[in-house]
């Protein structure tokens, strides 16, 4: 009986220690308007979200969309695209601010990101790959 109780307590503790979200295993889809089909590299996505690249190849201005701070997709995107360089991002955006350049705009949900990207030919965002549908084009998968 005591062994059973101890095993039950152990199982409860172990299950409680499991990660609350699947952020570490999240696959992201970088999405653009469906009229754009060309695949992008991770480096190109990094340049775009740093606003170093501001235009598509056809000359259309790029509008990069971030998700909210603290969301699993945002955390995964930062880790997968910027890696160790993420630690330098505050200093980078401080310098860019001095030149009048602000970070990408933030939308409050994946649905909002999907709707925005689907309706604007210049937009680029990222969502959980499971949620990307035919209203957008996936140009890069990150995992």
């Amino acid at each position: 009986m005591r062994a059973l109780l101890g095993a039950w307590v152990a199982a409860t503790l172990w299950l409680g220690a499991l990660p609350a979200s699947g952020a570490e295993e999240l696959e992201l889809a970088v999405i653009v308007h469906p009229t754009r089909a060309a695949a992008l590299t991770t480096e190109a996505v990094k340049r775009i979200f740093l606003k170093r690249q501001r235009f598509w190849d056809d000359g259309h201005p790029i509008v990069a969309i971030n998700q909210e701070v603290g969301t699993p997709a945002r955390e995964a995107f930062t880790r997968l695209v910027f890696g160790a360089e993420a630690a330098r991002l505050p200093a980078y955006w401080n310098e860019r601010y001095f030149h009048g350049v602000l970070p990408p705009i933030i939308l409050g949900s994946e649905e909002a990101v999907m709707r925005y990207v689907a309706s604007r030919p210049g937009a680029i965002g990222y969502v959980d790959a499971r949620h990307a549908d035919a209203s957008v084009a996936v140009v890069l998968r990150l995992r």
Binding site: G6, A10, L13, A17
Partner: peptide, 17 residues
């Protein structure tokens, strides 16, 4: 056995947390 189970769980919890 009971205390061993709890000890193992505690170690797993410490790393899991």
């Amino acid at each position: 056995r009971a205390h061993a189970a709890v000890l193992v769980a505690a170690l797993a919890t410490a790393s899991g947390v």
